[in-house]
Every structure is written in structure tokens, then in C-alpha cells.
């Protein structure tokens, strides 16, 4: 008898742990779903697809936007779910397949534009319905404090003289923002992108070690990741890639430093194709309202993001021009047909 009872007890212990974990992980969103009451003007049942894993850039953007929309009473509870893979193109494929679904948006950004090419994705952003561009962040050109380069001009001269011997590191794989920025810089400097010795690191953290340790001649990365190291004087910013100088960063823009190019890493949302005019207008209105809400302003402040709002049609035109620019660079590198 006791022999038969024991496995049950072991099982019930296991079950108890399972239930506890499930409760902690599942109850908060479920409760959220119940309490998302509305007054009829709200957008109900909105879902946000995040094409990378929890904690990644698009994920933080989506979860922050979802929370701000809920708090501002613009929507009912927003379900955020992750469908990572292939630099965001797996999620893109799903979005394109959900044709006509006007309660789904995908959080995305510049990285997805390049991934479409490097992953030979059958679905492209041209297939989606652009809803809004939300934020942007400048990229920075950084060197370690003991680097011989003190100005961008110096660096570019050395780079042009010996592109192979001046490796540039970035935290994204080919086609991503940290890869595109130095390629565009090279083009502006008259250096063929094919000659650029780009060393790809797995995210800004790994790149940071390489820059601090002088493993690469210079690094290109988003500003936000390195704010503290810059304040501490461990890193020197030679230039920001944005069109205008960035407050709080003592560095010229690329144009001011003599390279005729500007570049920002932006994020936005797109919806599936084939939306009705009404469905599309609802989504655009929701994100327009989000942009004007104090909750979103606070979220921008907290995350150190720059507002870069563009409504749907304008964002669509912008997507096209970015696509063109990215395609041209990748074509020269042989990464696309």
C-alpha cells in the first residue's frame, strides 16, 4: 500500500510546483485581460507580435507600448507574444499571412529591413500595412579611451589607407543597424563597402568588450547601451550618426565631421496586408493617440528613446526609401540578388 502511495506523493509535489509556476506566470496577464474594461471607444482585442525573443529591442518596445496604451485607456488588454526567428522574418511571414486581421500589429525596426534580404525572406515589408514609426536612436562611432584616434577625420583617413587593418566591430549580424551604419559611412568616404572589415559580435555587450580591449579599431553601436561607459570616460565617441547633434553627447554628427551621410536606428509597427479602411484607421488612430499620451512620454523618458513618430502613409514612404538604401548596400556586398 505504502509503495503505491509514494509515487503519488512525488507527483503531487511536482504538480504543486507546476501549478505554482503556472499561476505566477499566467495569472497576471489573465487578470489583466479581465480588468481591461472599456467605454466603447477603446480598441479591443489588440495583439502585438514581437519577432524576436523576450528582452530584445522589439520586445521592450512592444511591451512598453502595450502597457502605455492600456494605462492610457486607449485599448483593452493588449496581448504581446513572441515569434522569434531569422532576424524577425519568421514573425514577418506570420504577419503577412494574417491578411485582413486588423487586431494584430508587429513591432519591428530597421533590422527587419536588412533581414528580409539576408534571410531571403519570401515576405517583405512592402507586403505589410505600415501603421506608425515610433522611436529612433542614433548610432555612435566609438573607440576606447586609449585609442590613437581622437577625431572622425583621423579615423577615416586611416580607414581609407588600410581598410583591412582597421577592423570595425558591430553588435548586429550582416544586414543589421550596426552593420549598415559603417557600410554607409564607408560609401560616403569613397571606400567600397566590400573592403570594409566588419567584425560581427553577438549584441552590444560582446562588442563592448572588444572595443574596450582594443580588439577592433572602432565600434558602431546604439547610444543607449554605452551611456555609462561614455560618462565614465572609458569610451570616446567620435561621431553620432543622426542628422542633428545629440544633447548630452559631446560629438559631432557625421556630416559635421565631413561624411555626407546620416543614419538612425528606428522602430515602429506594421500590420497585416488587406486591411479594411476602417480597420486601418482604427489602428493608426490608436498609435497616434499613444504618441500624444503622457504615459508614452514617460516611457520614452524612462527608456531614453527619442520620439520619431510618423503616421502610416508617411512611414510607408520612409520604409520604401530605407529599403532602397539597405538593398543597395547589401547588393554591393553580394548579400542579395
Amino acid at each position: 500500500m505504502s509503495v503505491r502511495e509514494k509515487p503519488t506523493r512525488g507527483l503531487s509535489a511536482a504538480l504543486a510546483v507546476l501549478v505554482a509556476a503556472a499561476a505566477v506566470l499566467l495569472v497576471p496577464p489573465a487578470v489583466g485581460a479581465l480588468t481591461g474594461g472599456g467605454d466603447g471607444t477603446q480598441l479591443r482585442g489588440l495583439r502585438m507580435l514581437v519577432p524576436n525573443s523576450p528582452g530584445g529591442g522589439y520586445d521592450v518596445t512592444a511591451r512598453t507600448a502595450a502597457k502605455a496604451m492600456e494605462d492610457a485607456g486607449l485599448t483593452g488588454s493588449v496581448e504581446v507574444f513572441n515569434l522569434p526567428g531569422a532576424g524577425g522574418t519568421v514573425g514577418l511571414g506570420r504577419t503577412v499571412n494574417e491578411s485582413g486581421n486588423d487586431r494584430l500589429v508587429m513591432s519591428m525596426g530597421l533590422g527587419v529591413v536588412g533581414s528580409v534580404y539576408t534571410n531571403r525572406s519570401p515576405s517583405t515589408l512592402a507586403d505589410t500595412t505600415p501603421i506608425a514609426r515610433l522611436t529612433q536612436e542614433t548610432e555612435i562611432v566609438v573607440v576606447a579611451k586609449d585609442s590613437p584616434y581622437t577625431s572622425l577625420g583621423q579615423l577615416v583617413d586611416a580607414w581609407k589607407a588600410d581598410p583591412g587593418g582597421v577592423p570595425v566591430g558591430g553588435g548586429s549580424s550582416p544586414g543589421g543597424p550596426d552593420h549598415l551604419a559603417p557600410m554607409l559611412m564607408a560609401k560616403a568616404a569613397g571606400l567600397p563597402p566590400k573592403d570594409v572589415n566588419y567584425v560581427s559580435y553577438d549584441g552590444g555587450g560582446e562588442l563592448l568588450a572588444a572595443v574596450l580591449g582594443g580588439k577592433v579599431a572602432f565600434g558602431v553601436s546604439g547610444l543607449g547601451e554605452y551611456a555609462d561607459q561614455i560618462d565614465a570616460g572609458e569610451l570616446r565617441v567620435l561621431a553620432v550618426t543622426a542628422g542633428d547633434p545629440v544633447p548630452g553627447v559631446d560629438a559631432p554628427t557625421l556630416r559635421q565631421a565631413g561624411l555626407g551621410v546620416e543614419f538612425t536606428n528606428w522602430r515602429g509597427v506594421v500590420a497585416p496586408p488587406g486591411l479594411s479602411d476602417e480597420g486601418r484607421a482604427d489602428l493608426e488612430a490608436a498609435f497616434d493617440a499613444l504618441r500624444r499620451s503622457p504615459e508614452w512620454a514617460q516611457a520614452l523618458e524612462r527608456n531614453g528613446w527619442t520620439d520619431a513618430y510618423q503616421p502610416g502613409p508617411e512611414f510607408g514612404a520612409f520604409l520604401e526609401s530605407e529599403n532602397e538604401r539597405v538593398a543597395e548596400v547589401l547588393r554591393e556586398l553580394g548579400l542579395t540578388s
Binding site: V60, G203, G205, E206, L208, D228
Partner: peptide
């Protein structure tokens, strides 16, 4: 260093930033 060497460290780093704290040499 503010240098995440694993996925969980990267997420925790993001969490620090959400609270307005920047891990790194000055932390």
C-alpha cells in the same frame, strides 16, 4: 562593466535600464 555575457544578463541589464540605473564602471 555593464557587459552582459549571457542572455539572462542581457535581460537583467535591460531591466536595470528600465529602472534608470546603468550598470557599468560607475555602478
Amino acid at each position: 562593466l555593464g557587459l552582459p555575457t549571457t542572455a539572462i544578463a542581457a535581460v537583467m541589464l535591460a531591466a536595470f535600464q528600465q529602472f534608470g540605473i546603468q550598470p557599468g564602471p560607475l555602478l
